[in-house]
């Protein structure tokens, strides 16, 4: 998938849809969990794609 601002914006849009889905189906309890998971997911992606990978790896 192409990187850059367009890719980030696209992913933010999907994340927004996911939160709307959780809200609409009254899955409120999942919102904090999913938020944490998405942050981890973003870190994973950054770790895969960038030069700061070694530093993130040492954090865990």
């Amino acid at each position: 998938m192409p990187r850059g601002w367009d890719g980030v914006r696209g992913r933010l849009s999907v994340a927004g849809s996911l939160f709307r889905f959780l809200w609409m189906y009254r899955l409120w309890w999942m919102i904090p969990l999913v938020s944490v998971l998405l942050v981890f997911g973003a870190l994973l992606l950054v770790a895969q794609q960038s030069a700061i990978a070694p530093f993130i790896y040492t954090l865990f």
């Binding site: 998938m1 890719g7 696209g10 849009s13 981890f40 997911g41 895969q48």
Partner: peptide
């Protein structure tokens, strides 16, 4: 969660980027 957070959740974005279609 590893596979979901990296790939599966973002299928819409993957399609959009690959085919250049609006959401």
């Amino acid at each position: 969660m590893g596979s979901w957070l990296v790939d599966k959740l973002w299928i819409q974005e993957l399609i959009r980027q690959d085919l250049g279609l609006p959401g």
